[in-house]
């Protein structure tokens, strides 16, 4: 029982006993001890006390009204969570920048550019005919994440490959955008963090990454202009 005793002697406990000793009267807590009243006039007071002791035992706290009031108060407090959580979501300014338009004219065949969209790099490669052909004829069944090339580009614009340039393994940015970069074993992209190899369609071919590079929602607003987002 020693730990229990120690528990009872918490600081408020100690301090309250001091308070009680100062008031120099019997404890107001004890329901079972009748008070020693010195003056005859206190007779009424004692009745009142006994009466009160019985009453405070039963303060109607199970009353429907009390429960309803408490429930209302609790619901109100809980509803404040909504704005408090919402404020951390992307704000109106960030949402307004959620789409971006890119002019493709300067990107020659075989070249690639990297643009920013929602704070993420987006790879845009103007693929050569050989690269398109290589991507198209790859047997889909052999891929870790089977997907045909045609589904990753827009019909009639097969040379344009647009992808979020973030490795699906742990979020590094793969190499392969510039001429000097290693393009990996499949002529596409290579992530130096943990050795994931992507092909000319951005599909995972070798290494730990589980999925192909993500294609963001985009559309051609004109022949040479795309809108991402």
């Amino acid at each position: 029982m020693v730990p229990y005793q120690r528990g009872r002697r918490s600081f408020v406990k100690l301090s309250m006993s001091k308070r009680v000793s100062r008031t120099a009267g019997p404890s107001p807590f004890d329901l079972h001890v009748s008070h020693q009243c010195k003056t005859p006039a206190d007779g009424n007071g004692r009745n009142e006390e006994a009466h009160l002791a019985a009453e405070i035992e039963d303060p109607n706290r199970r009353d429907v009204l009390v429960l309803a009031a408490n429930a209302f108060a609790a619901v109100g407090a809980a509803s404040l969570i909504w704005p408090f959580v919402q404020q951390m979501n992307p704000d109106a300014g960030a949402k307004a920048l959620a789409s971006t338009e890119i002019d493709l004219t300067p990107v020659k065949e075989g070249q690639a550019i990297t643009v920013m969209w929602r704070g993420k790099p987006v790879f845009i490669r103007n693929r050569t005919k050989d690269e398109v052909a290589a991507a198209a004829k790859t047997p889909v069944t052999e891929l870790p994440d089977p997907e045909v090339d045609a589904k990753r580009v827009k019909a009639g614009k097969e040379n344009w490959l647009v992808m979020v340039g973030i490795c699906t393994h742990l979020g590094c940015v793969p190499k392969g955008q510039t001429m000097a970069d290693s393009k990996g074993d499949f002529g596409g992209w290579f992530c130096p963090c943990h050795g994931s190899h992507y092909d000319t369609s951005g599909r995972i071919r070798k290494g730990p990454a589980p999925r192909n590079l993500e294609v963001p929602p985009y559309e051609f607003v004109s022949d040479t202009k795309i809108k991402i987002g």
């Binding site: 308070r19 404890s27 009160l52 303060p59």
Partner: peptide, 29 residues
């Protein structure tokens, strides 16, 4: 609050708690 719980609350009469009947438990009152 600690100091308050040592001295106990004052009240409109300014008279200290003396009897059981002077007080009610904080919850739910």
């Amino acid at each position: 609050v600690w100091a308050l719980h040592v001295a106990g609350q004052n009240n409109p009469t300014g008279i200290e708690l003396q009897h059981k009947s002077d007080s009610v438990p904080m919850a739910p009152y």
